[in-house]
Amino acid sequence: MSNQTPDEPVRSSDAVAIPVIERVWWREAWKELKKAQWTAKLGVVIILSYVFVAVFAPILTPYGESQIVGDAFEPWGDPYLLGTDNLGRDMLTRLIYGARNTLGIAFVTTILAFVVGGGLGLTAATLRGWTDQGLSRIVDVFMAIPVLIFALVLIAIFGSTVQNLIIIIALLDSTRVFRLTRAVGMNVAVMDFVEAAKLRGEGLSWIMLREVLPNILPPLVVEFGLRFCFVFLLIATLSFLGVGVQPPTADWGSMVRDNATLITYGDITPLLPAGAIALLTVGVNFVVDWFLQKTSGLHDDH
């Protein structure tokens, strides 16, 4: 990044160049997207609309998140577009706030998992030797327990607050991120330019973040999509089981649980939050599929 010539004109042209690069990047993405299969386009549209709903939840909703507006289980109709839930709260409002809460928690959790798992994975790949052995064996043991079961045990011990939930799931998920980061990082860490950086006397964090990380970014981006789906489903499942996000916070998993009795009367309202979960996972999977094909040149041969 550092420029050899420190005179003014070069600086100003640098400053102009950055937004141009950015615009080109967006145009590139747009061009790629236009060429993509319909599934990828659909996926992008789905994801963007979820983000929109999550960001503008307070503006879009007619009522407050946990405001009781009428009787329990009112049918779909005029004041309550999708009826009311088991406590008489507006279903549509809860659904929209649910997008915000469920997505927000899943997003924070996935980022945390990537920071922890990715960081340790890079460390293991760069340092190798005992650090790698130690971390890998610990991760092996953690991965020997099914995630849902492990999460249930930890929740039973620590209690289910939102912070606990985020930390527990992020830690469990970081083992998977560790595995991948270590595996792809190993291949890069043995290359000559890394060796050169080591000989140059660069520190560990420089080698990890400036030499190895940029070269393993594509698989990590794909993994982020997949891990996000997984975390999102896990949180929804835990909430559905009644040990995840606690009331009165609106959350899709617990909304299914709270209103499940309606299903026995043939009412599909409780399926809406479940459908919202399913639709987003399908959308993310479509985009990840497209990204995978783009980055690896893979074709769906078998």
Partner: peptide, 21 residues
């Protein structure tokens, strides 16, 4: 591809509505 994207409880409730209800 779609069935692996669905949470299990979603599949379960769809089956309940279709085959049970």
């Amino acid at each position: 591809l779609t069935s692996i994207s669905f949470p299990e409880f979603f599949i379960a409730y769809i089956l309940i509505i279709v085959f049970g209800q």
